[in-house]
Design a protein around this nucleic acid. Sequence first.
DNA 1: ATGCCTTAGAGACTAAGA
Length: 264
Amino acid sequence: MKNLRIATFNVNGMRARLPNLLAWLEREKPDIACLQELKSVDSAFPAAELEAAGYGAIWQGQSSWNGVAILARDAQPLESRRGLPGDDGDTHSRYLEAAVHGVLVGCLYLPNGNPQPGPKFDYKLAWFERLIAYAKDLQSSEHPVVLAGDYNVVPTDLDIYNPRSWLKDALLQPESRECYQRLLDQGWTDSLRHLYPEDRLYTFWDYFRQHWQKNSGLRIDHLLLNPALSPYLQEAGVDAWVRNEPHASDHAPTWIQLGSRKRR
DNA sequence: ATGCCTTAGAGACTAAGA
């Protein structure tokens, strides 16, 4: 495995965030970037600007909400799937998958699920079940696979500054956490948690109550590796500086560095 | 229970986010 950096970044509006996105790509130069919450239609995707920055892309847009994309540095992602199987009536743009730089990359935007209980929470859990069912074959694949994106799940209380005011939120519900754990139990590696088992690492800080300034964050953007890929995990982190920029998304890019197989 | 803030897209506001 050659050195490869794979990142996931919920941009929260592609149009509003394009300058921030380009500045991040220029500085960090990820080889692969999974984007979520484009909030714009396919025809508005800034393919030319990304091309000029050195990135090929595929995207699945949607007006106003959702939307996912996969960017590849000096390459064109080879699309292998758009949309999860299991519900032909699901119109949300939340899953895109491609072969890039020798890795199969699943880019996902899992439903938020608020308010709960209610139909949105039901949709979240149903979508999660479809992901778990679909991920089973990817997990056992002999090809390297990463499932990267905004999972909208705070896996444990270590992944949030203080759960107290979030106890009724869909991101912390036992059902949401149970789904995430059941996905991991298939044999996926949660990259950041694997490398930093006891650290408080956040990927999202909401716009309210000066949560960024107080580092009141949540870890909800995850990169999951199958056993064919996990031996090559070398480093992982969060580009928190992006969250501190003017006009920032409420998420920061989260990344892994792959390289030669780690000695054990 | 809700605001706190920000986005998109419509239309002078609403829905949604997490």
